[in-house]
Design a protein around this nucleic acid. Structure first.
Lengths: 255, 255
DNA sequence: CAGAGTGTACTGGTCTGACCATATATTTCA
DNA sequence: TGAAATATATGGTCAGACCAGTACACTCTG
């Protein structure tokens, strides 16, 4: 070797990727803001000096990441969108469903998220959100007489209001994904042993307890209650071994 | 109106979207598994009866979501990929950068995941995994003298081994995503105040403590230690207000 | 002058067909 | 048997074309 220049690995960068990078960069530096319009595809191919196919492929990946939206016929060009966690939801959902995940892992994940959400909700909830949660619990009580399906819908609404009150979108998104996947996995078990009157009353009482702790601003208690209730709820349909492990974890192990 | 047929909203579905749906569906039903090869673009245009541009646009969005990868010249066709947290990291990253998700949310998320991972690792670790973790800590000690970059690489390796020992893929994936996004966000702050010798020694001591608790099977302690160390680590670069809130949460609130 | 209807120019979606560099598989050769 | 040359199909890119639809300006009408 006659020189010591610091060579670096070379990777072929595809044309459409460089287009994506530039537009994505302009968006992340606020050069392009939500509501702004991109030039039309035919203009873009002139400024980037590539063919329209390349421009289109770039726009497709930008669109799939939720950064822009193209509508046919709109003379104003593709629109720059407001960033939204919706795309994250989709990704997390796919991940949860795609990965081969044991039921117990999913339950652990859910326990952890539910606990954290309740803890944070106790710390961060606003008065308005407290009202919403109270209303959700009242709705649950009203739905007890309308059967398990209506009741569990109201139950979900309560949990969603708690997640919102946690002011943590990541926990909210992952929590919803975990809940959805979990319900899919245990749907048959739930069908076989649907929520009885007694079970509904129990859930209601539990949620009331949680609400009390959140209302009092007692995060640790809210979290502990939430975890133990989730464990109790899914305990029936998990193997005895897992029941034991998670049960022991109830008050301390997952703290 | 002469009939009451239940009409439903009609949306034009673009051709490439239907291609995406079908391939995505095949992947999510395990009909296509990681490592499998898709037919070549020219074959796909025959089976879907669309043009190659349409196929390519579909492949671009599948590629941008991390489901497949196309390599030029490979006669075996596009490869179906294993789901990875990388895409999650990127998405979270962008959302934080665009201020759709607050940095403190990300830190809270990380705290929760790290704590849960350590707690579960203490319960579920095998002897082999314990060995791996011990080796990782030893490697950290050895890397102290090789500077911050080498050290933090070893630090990451230790955390990865803990995540693996938790036997929970969801926590592992989300943990990696959160860590990756967080590091990207605070990279500049870290550059400004790189890990000093003292800081490295401190991290090493912390990880040793955690390893001790995991080794002893003491989940609660492992979790509590992990949470407080993460808080300590990121406390400097967070606002005072958040520091206070999370600091108070240290031993109890996030439990 | 205001509002309803009409045109029209340009947009995005799709298609066809072509060229290139490259990764793999096959064949050839030593 | 092993290495080198070749063949082949692949993905990346390009050019040019057509169509259905939207937004906007322009009518025409009252």
């Amino acid at each position: 070797m006659t020189h010591k220049a610091a060579f670096t690995a070379v990777k072929t960068v595809k044309a459409y990727e460089r287009v994506v990078e530039q537009i994505e960069g302009a968006i992340s530096t606020r050069e392009l803001r939500p509501g702004d319009r991109l030039p039309s595809e035919r203009e873009l191919m002139l400024t980037f000096e590539v063919s329209r196919s390349t421009i289109r492929e770039a726009l497709r990946v930008l669109e799939s990441t939720g950064l822009v939206r193209s509508r046919p016929g709109d003379p104003r060009g593709p629109e720059v969108l407001q960033a939204s966690p919706a795309i994250l939801t989709k990704t997390v959902n796919r991940l949860v469903r795609l990965e081969t995940i044991a039921l117990e892992e999913l339950v652990e994940f859910r326990i952890m998220l539910e606990g954290a959400a309740c803890t944070l909700a106790a710390q961060h909830r606003t008065e308005d959100q407290l009202q919403t949660m109270r209303a959700a619990v009242d709705a649950m009580r009203a739905e007890v007489k309308h059967g398990p399906i209506a009741f569990s819908r109201a139950d979900v609404a309560f949990h969603v209001s708690v997640w919102e009150a946690s002011h943590n979108q990541l926990i909210q998104i992952c929590g919803e994904a975990a809940r959805g996947a979990l319900i899919d996995m245990v749907a048959e078990e739930l069908d076989r042993a649907p929520n009885s009157q007694a079970k509904m009353e129990l859930s209601l009482a539990h949620d009331r307890e949680i609400l009390g702790a959140i209302s009092a601003g007692d995060g640790p208690t809210a979290g502990r209650l939430a975890r133990s209730f989730v464990i109790e709820y899914y305990g029936d349909i998990m193997s005895l071994k897992n029941r034991a492990a998670l049960g022991a974890a109830d008050d301390v192990a997952l703290s």
